[in-house]
């Protein structure tokens, strides 16, 4: 009885004024109250470019995982995949906001209306060649097994990077990494547990898991090669050298695949950076068209 009245009361009171309804109104700067000073000796353009690399990976993978929502195998998995996508979206927002705070906005700032915050200017008003995401996260989902194989690789790699990034000389990056480590540890665990079930489940799931792993492994090739930006920022104590996480990533993946009774595909030779330099295959334009279309149709709108 009491509960019923409470909820009705809350709704009735809401007639009276905007205050009752509009909590969360407006846009809150995700970096509000954070000291965004760039560390000494660091080129803000480099720092911003690095934030775009890490932010775009998170944004694009969140978009891919969101494609599973309403299509997942079980309701529990709907919730889990949406949750992982939400974590990554949160990381993307912080990283894009950090890129904006150091002035790395380029043309997106003039294309987006004044009411649009930096994170959205960057997410919605950059063109394909301005995105810095790796081929690993851009690749289509494939079936559930391939989705899980990609998530395992992406989470393992990103967790290894973020664990080291907690010591970054940029306090904002260090804080984003510290928050992200807990999330990524869960993502890796979730994907790892699924790969065990699929690899050691039925004959069909084993075959699909192996095919998923085989499809994803070549995408490891450019993950461990530093761009010039990453090399300079690593020297400055701001970024993590991607080569430094290779052994950890390999050892985790080897262990999970072995326990999942899957054959280890050949480890690909290191390749030159591609996505990190804005070079993308045909899948990213299609993904961005869907992501950006509505926002670009209404550049002066307020959402």
């Amino acid at each position: 009885m009491a509960h019923e009245e409470t909820v009705y009361d809350a709704l009735d009171q809401a007639h009276g004024g905007e205050g009752h309804w509009a909590f969360g109104t407006g846009f809150d700067d995700p970096l509000a109250g954070v000291d965004t000073t760039v560390p000494d000796g660091v080129d803000p353009a480099d720092l911003g470019a690095y934030c775009l690399m890490l932010g775009d990976d998170a944004l694009v993978l969140a978009q891919r995982l969101t494609q599973w929502v309403t299509n997942a195998p079980e309701l529990e998995e709907e919730v889990a995949l949406a949750n992982i996508a939400l974590d990554l979206l949160g990381q993307a927002r912080l990283l894009l906001a950090r890129a904006g705070s150091v002035g790395v906005l380029g043309r997106s700032r003039t294309l987006a209306g004044d009411t649009i915050p930096d994170e959205d200017a960057l997410a919605y008003f950059r063109d394909v060649d301005e995105f810095r995401s790796t081929a690993l996260v851009v690749a289509p989902n494939g079936d559930f097994a391939q989705t899980i194989a990609r998530l395992l690789v992406a989470a393992t790699w990103r967790l290894a990077l973020f664990a080291r990034l907690r010591a970054s000389r940029d306090p904002v990056l260090a804080a984003i990494a510290a928050k992200g480590v807990n999330e990524l540890a869960y993502h890796r665990d979730h994907a790892g547990r699924w790969l065990l079930r699929l690899g050691d489940g039925t004959a069909e799931s084993h075959q699909r898991a192996q095919a998923g792993v085989d499809a994803v492994w070549p995408l490891l090739a450019d993950l461990f090669t530093a761009t010039e930006v990453e090399a300079r920022l690593t020297a400055a104590g701001v970024a993590v050298d991607p080569a430094s996480v290779r052994d950890e990533v390999r050892s985790v993946l080897d262990e999970v695949l072995t326990r999942a009774t899957l054959r280890l595909p050949a480890w690909p030779a290191d390749a030159a950076p591609g996505g990190r330099l804005g070079r993308h295959g045909p899948e990213l334009p299609a993904l961005l068209e869907e992501l950006q279309g509505l926002a670009r149709t209404h550049p002066q709108a307020t959402w």
Binding site: T66, V69, A82, R93, G293
Partner: peptide, 17 residues
């Protein structure tokens, strides 16, 4: 997939979840 801001995307994703 087409939500017009990242904040709206997060709100909608949490709601559908």
């Amino acid at each position: 997939l087409a939500a017009p801001s990242l904040r709206r995307k997060a709100i909608l994703l949490a709601k559908v979840q």
